[in-house]
Each structure stands twice: as structure tokens, then as C-alpha cells.
Design a protein around this nucleic acid. Structure first.
Lengths: 355, 355
DNA sequence: ATTAGCACTCTCCTTTGCTGAGTGCTAACA
DNA sequence: TGTTAGCACTCAGCAAAGGAGAGTGCTAAT
């Protein structure tokens, strides 16, 4: 059966109606739309066809129709019109994205929170992982008699720091010495390559003159490991309560349980990485069975063409894809801009130096 | 009407029954308890009295009774037996509290998360504020061509750091110079006393030789302000979904809305500060009307007798006070221990130096 | 090809009646 | 005088029954 223009138009109307009302769509309500000058009976015939094609499903015999996963997929891929953001919305986003200078993690989380409250949907996000990260600089700074701070920056300027509690007094010179040793041995490696064996080696190079070194190296290892674990977060999860589909607590609980599991989130976010642009996962396409009635829109953010992390929106399958996709793309672009300004600028300096 | 021993016993049985079942307690179920050898009719008479005294309320004519706020209050203040934690529980808590060396914020949040998953209740917490904090040391460390890190530590060793993005190349010497200037002028002040006027003054002392100073000082101000804002957090909020009282989404939404408001949390936590020990707020005693069906147990944690912050448990009014109070006290004690080890030890060193 | 009409289906809401838990009161009992 | 058994009464909660409304598929007419 061919999917002619009229069918497409009807399909689009159904999906959009369902997105707005969350109620199964009947033939009458579609026939009322002025752009389709057709009777309910005609619509019924067409809807029958669309159901046969697997684009619609009927919750029960005498109810209206609801889009199936492939129905949404069709809508997202070819029916949907691009949502044009209003000037007001753009202004609001820009304002939210215009964050004060601070650490990467905070910026990303803040932007995610702003996006969540703006979109009224939960936002999931991932902070930069390790595959991309090459350690450029390690520094140990004495900040107190028995405390030092370990500061690690990677080539795109991402910074992670960790307090080293040495339980033993150290000197400034010792910290400097330590910085030098660590830099000589670890700078240039990707973070994921810095493992315990590696660190042990460093330790053996230095020799075991200082007893304190063993515990320091252990802490360094811990610190690097901590950088290693990709950080995944969720902001504004309670926004989901606004939707009628979460009208009973069972559903809410199921969702919360699924989302509190890092593994699940990680699986979802990994789906976005290869694509490099906004990606929509609908219903069963999400690699977490519990979320089969939801959809996720994912988009990566970058610093100088390098994917740094991912931001995603989680909502019911009937979410307003058009709007969410536009907004998410805009947000990740803004985020990329902010990050480039704060963390990427040095690229130019380096570039200049190399020329 | 006097509250004789039998009434107390009955009252205790009612509260505990209700804590366990979440169902209004009838006379029959109480009369079955072996420790009270009384018939249902007698219990009914007593319950009538207790209701008249305002300790119990009846949801409707033919239902059992439920403790009122003053009923819970009586229970907590004089009826309740102290819960003795099992060795297994203690071991689990110790294990959870035995955190790796890391920054204060992370420790506290991790402990709160562990407590939440252990108690099955949401945990709210506050990180150290500013009234207590006296800046002891400020350090600016160059970590890249155009970036530096500002590290602030206070007298109890709490550390807060912030990335300074200078958008301009600086030298190590400049960073050192800056550290010295900041230290000379700001060390010794409480964080809350470091305001813009103050910083401006520093700036005027240095003179305006370097144009870059203006922006640095602005960033310093921002950083200090950021330290200033008390940080309040909630862990494991979704635990609340386990309770039958949150069986409908309206209730859940109301709670989430109330809890997402920082002002509310701040109000609640402030209640704990003067007391200095575990404090229970029941029902309407909570300064947030939306939480009138809940209770909060709060306890401060300390470093060397100085209150550093607060941890609290939020749950339905019928929570197991005895258990929650014991566990919370134990947890905050453990937290204090960990913090003392990581942040407080230097106190001794300083003390030694002064002697 | 489109549409009006009709019989049919099924959910949802309301009504009705019943059951069971719980109460208050009274009278008998120790 | 305190305690208890008994009884009539109340009320939430559940299930069954009935009706309304929305929607469908099919057929016949346009």
C-alpha cells in the first residue's frame, strides 16, 4: 500500500494531535481540521490503512488510534516540520547559557538544569569521558601542611582536580618535585592509558626513597581513576510528573528505578556518540526495556569539533519532537560555544605556536 | 485527665502499630497485644480519652485512630524506646562512611547518599556555610597559559577551589604575586566579610598597574561569593515512592515541588542549627505547610566541636523515629569522625605550633 | 472516490447494594 | 469501680449493574 500525500497529512495530524492531547485520536477530531477537508468516514478508512501499515495502533476496539514506534519514527524522519524558535525563547536560552566562568562540570550541569526547566522535561547528560582525553599537564600544589591539590588538565583544557590528603607534612619543594616527576612520566598519555601498572612504573623509576611516595601514588591513581569514570547525571527528573501518562505511582516508580541505574543511562547515551548529531530514540528503540513508552532525544556538544559529551532529553513517546530537537540542538550549540570560549581558546594559541 | 501508665502503653502501641502498617489503628488490633491484657472495649474507652486529649485523631467515624502531631511528639519525647542498632547495621554504616580521601562536598554527599539507600528515606543535607569559615589561605596557581586555579582553605581545612579563566597569558610569577597579595589582604577574614567593597580596596592598594587585575579581582569576588552560598542538597528523594502515603501522584508532585524549592529546605535545616543535637520536626512543626504530613529528623555534623553542616531525613510523619534517630546520630558521628581525620587533624599541628 | 447512516464495541462513570472493620453505648459482671 | 460482652450504628471500599459517549467497521447512496 502506498503512503500517498493524503495519508502523510493525516498521519501528521494524528501524531500532532496525540502529542498535544495524550488521548487516542478519533476520526472525527481529525476530520474537523480545516486543512483536510474530509469526512470522518474517509479518515476512518485511511486510518484503517495506516494501522494495517503498522503506523498506528488501537489501544482497544472502540478507542481512537495512537502512533506506534514506527509511526513516530516516520513522523520524526519525514513528516515533522522544523520548529522555529521564537526570539523570546532564543533570548532565554542565550541568557541561561551565558554562564560565569567556572569548571566544566558545573557549566554543563547548569546548562542542563536550565534546559530542563525551560523544556519542562528531564535532561540527562554525560560529561567528557576518557577516550578523548589526553593528559597534558599534571600539577601538585601544596596548599597546607599536610594537604596538596592534584590538578590535571587535558589537551582541550578540561580540568579535574582532587584533594590529596597526605596525613604528613610536606614542603613546597616536594610538591614541585612531584609535579615534575608526574609530568615527565604521565603527560601525553590518554587518561584511559594511565592505569595502576603505569603508575607503579613511575614509582619504580623514582625509587622508593621516600616512604610517602607510595601513598601519594596511590592517591594519584585514585584521582585519575575518578577522572576516568564517565560522569552521567539527570536534571529535573520530577518534570516527568507533569505528564498524564505518569498519573499513577507505579509508572513513576518504574521510570525512576530505570533512570537511577547508571548502566541504563550509559547505554542510552552511548547511542548518541557515533552519530555526531541530534538523534532520536523512540519507544523500543531505547536500549532499556523499561523505557519503551518513552523517547529520548540526544545531541552531543563539542569543543573544536571534538565531541566532549552528550545532552539528552527524556520524555513520553508523544513528546513534541520538533520543538525538543530544535531546542536541544540550540542548547548544545550554545554549550559548545561557551566551552570553546572557556576551554578551547588555547587551541588557537597552540596552533599559532606550531605554525 | 491524667495520662496514666496504661494510657501511655496504649498510646505507644498505637503509634508503633501505625508506623508499621500505615493503616488507622483499631481497638481490636491493640487488644490482641499480649503485653496489654485488655479487651477491645476497654481499649476503645481509653482511645476515646486519648482522642479527647488531642493525641489521636479519627480520619472518619468508623475508622481506627491515627496519631496527631502532639501524639507523635509525646511518643518521640517520652514513650519511644531507644533503638539499638545491630552489629550488622553498624558495620554497614562504618563501611559506607569510610570514604576515600576527597573533597568535603563529595564526602558529605556520598555519606548522605549511603545513608539514604540504607534508611530507604530521602536525605537532605547542608554543606558548611560561611559564618563559621575564616579564610586562612588563598592561593592562585597557574595551570595553563591563560588559566589559573584559585584555592581557598579555611581554618578547619575546608577547601573550595575555582577555575579562573583569564583569557590572557600569565606567568607563574604573576600567579605567585597574586597569591601573596590576596593572602595579605584577605586571609583571616570570615568568608562572609569578604565582599565587593573589600576586594575593591585590595585592588586600589595594588594600584591599577595591570589591566588584567580588574578582571581577576572580579573573578575572585565571584569565587568567594560562590563559596558563600550555603549548599543544600537532597539525595534519594525517590525513596519516598515506597510509602503507601505517596500512592497517588498528586501527593508526590506536591512533595517534589516543596522539596525542589531551596528556600524551603533552607528553612527546615535552619531549625537544626541552634539545637546542636538531633532534632525532630513533626507534621505542622515543619516550617513548610506543604510538608505537614511529613516529619524531618535533623542532626548536625561537626569538626572539632564546631558545627559544620547538617544532615536530615525526610519521611512520612509515621516514620520509625527510634530507628531513624539512632541511625542519623550514628551517621553524623561517623561523618564528623571522617572529617576530623581528613580536615581537622591539622588543628593539632596548629595547636602544637602555638604552644 | 467520498460520505452518510447504522449497528456494534468497549471504556468510563455513576449508581446501588453489600461487607467488614470499627465505634459508642449500655448493661452485666468481678 | 473498673472491665467486659453485646448490640446497633456508621462508613469506606469493593463489586456488580446500568447507561452514556466516543469510536469503529461496514454498507449503500451520492
Amino acid at each position: 500500500m502506498a503512503l500517498d500525500d493524503r495519508k502523510k497529512l493525516i498521519m501528521q495530524a494524528i501524531v500532532e494531535d496525540y502529542i498535544n492531547t495524550a488521548e487516542p485520536v478519533g476520526s472525527r477530531s481529525i476530520s474537523k481540521k480545516p486543512e483536510l477537508n474530509l469526512s470522518a468516514a474517509t479518515i476512518r478508512n485511511e486510518m484503517g490503512d495506516l494501522e494495517e501499515m503498522g503506523l498506528l495502533v488501537q489501544p482497544h476496539t472502540s478507542a481512537g488510534r495512537v502512533p506506534s514506534t514506527s509511526g513516530y519514527r516516520l513522523y520524526v524522519d519525514s513528516l515533522m516540520e522544523k520548529y522555529e524558535m521564537t526570539a523570546a525563547e532564543i533570548a532565554e536560552i542565550k541568557q541561561a547559557a551565558c554562564k560565569k566562568t567556572q569548571e566544566l562540570e558545573k557549566i554543563v550541569r547548569d546548562v542542563a538544569a536550565a534546559f530542563s526547566s525551560l523544556s519542562g522535561l528531564p535532561v540527562i547528560g554525560m560529561l567528557p569521558g576518557t577516550e578523548t582525553g589526553v593528559v597534558k599537564n599534571i600539577k601538585v600544589v601544596k596548599i597546607d601542611n599536610d594537604k596538596a591539590m592534584l590538578i590535571v588538565s587535558d589537551k582541550s583544557g578540561i580540568i579535574k582536580n582532587k584533594l590529596l590528603n597526605l596525613h604528613q607534612d610536606i614542603s613546597d619543594e616536594f610538591a614541585d618535585q612531584l609535579s615534575e616527576i608526574l609530568n615527565q612520566n604521565l603527560a601525553g598519555l590518554t587518561i584511559s592509558k594511565i592505569n595502576l601498572a603505569n603508575i607503579m612504573e613511575v614509582q619504580s623509576v623514582i625509587g622508593k626513597n621516600f616512604e610517602i611516595l607510595a601513598s601519594v601514588m596511590e592517591l594519584v591513581h585514585e584521582a585519575v581513576m575518578e577522572i576516568d569514570t564517565k560522569q552521567i547525571f539527570v536534571e529535573g527528573l520530577s518534570n516527568i510528573l507533569r505528564f498524564p501518562e505518569y498519573g499513577n505511582v507505579e509508572k513513576v516508580k518504574e521510570l525512576f528505578d530505570a533512570v537511577e541505574n547508571r548502566e541504563n543511562l550509559s547505554k542510552i547515551i552511548m547511542e548518541a556518540v557515533p552519530s555526531g548529531q541530534a538523534k532520536v530514540l523512540i519507544g523500543e528503540e531505547i536500549p532499556v526495556p523499561e523505557l519503551k513508552h518513552n523517547s529520548v532525544v540526544l545531541a552531543p556538544y563539542r569543543v573544536s569539533d571534538q565531541i566532549m559529551g552528550v545532552l539528552g532529553v527524556l520524555g513520553p513517546a508523544r513528546m513534541d519532537y520538533s520543538k525538543v530537537i530544535s531546542a536541544l540542538e540550540f542548547f548544545t550549540k550554545q554549550l559548545s560555544d561557551v566551552l570553546r570560549k572557556d576551554f578551547g581558546e588555547r587551541q588557537k594559541l597552540i596552533g599559532r605556536g606550531d605554525e
